[in-house]
């Protein structure tokens, strides 16, 4: 099955990916909590946790600005799932990581720079 957000996944620039998701005007919010390391020694396995403190959170998306395709994942939540997800991602180089939350039909975001000492997308 094709991904619902296929266009956003194909985007090569962060702005394009945000736009394809409909999140171009996401407001910066302290209620989006992104937990990621300051320095990742191994870019192949970088832990990421995103939590939303906003009511009616419908979706959570994770972008790695400098990856070839910035959009890494989108999580669609029903009211039976809590607005917190945790996974591990690949980062080719040091980059801003952007977490976007859709809550009550609006988009909110936060970002954090993660320095990578050994890239995870090369060989």
């Amino acid at each position: 099955a094709a991904r619902q957000m296929e266009n956003a996944f194909q985007a090569k620039k962060l702005e394009e990916a945000l736009q394809a998701l409909g999140a171009a005007n996401a407001a910066e919010s302290g209620d989006v909590v992104l937990t990621a390391p300051d320095i990742a020694e191994n870019g192949a396995v970088v832990p990421m946790e995103i939590e939303s403190k906003l009511p009616n959170t419908e979706a959570i998306a994770l972008f790695i600005e400098k990856n070839p395709n910035p959009l890494a994942a989108v999580f669609h939540l029903t009211p039976d799932a809590l607005p917190r997800v945790k996974t591990r991602v690949k980062m080719g180089q040091s980059s801003d990581v952007v977490a976007v939350v859709k809550a009550g039909g609006k988009y909110y975001m936060t970002k954090k720079e993660v320095k990578v000492t050994l890239g995870g997308c090369g060989g």
Partner: peptide, 30 residues
């Protein structure tokens, strides 16, 4: 796709940027 007793509660769309042998953690009302 995550479900509780057959009812979908969470759907994730992933790219190849998720690490090899993916780890995925979440919480559900159950």
């Amino acid at each position: 796709i995550a479900s509780v007793n057959g009812k979908t509660v969470l759907t994730a769309e992933w790219s190849g940027a998720i690490s090899t042998n993916p780890y995925f953690e979440f919480d559900v009302k159950a």
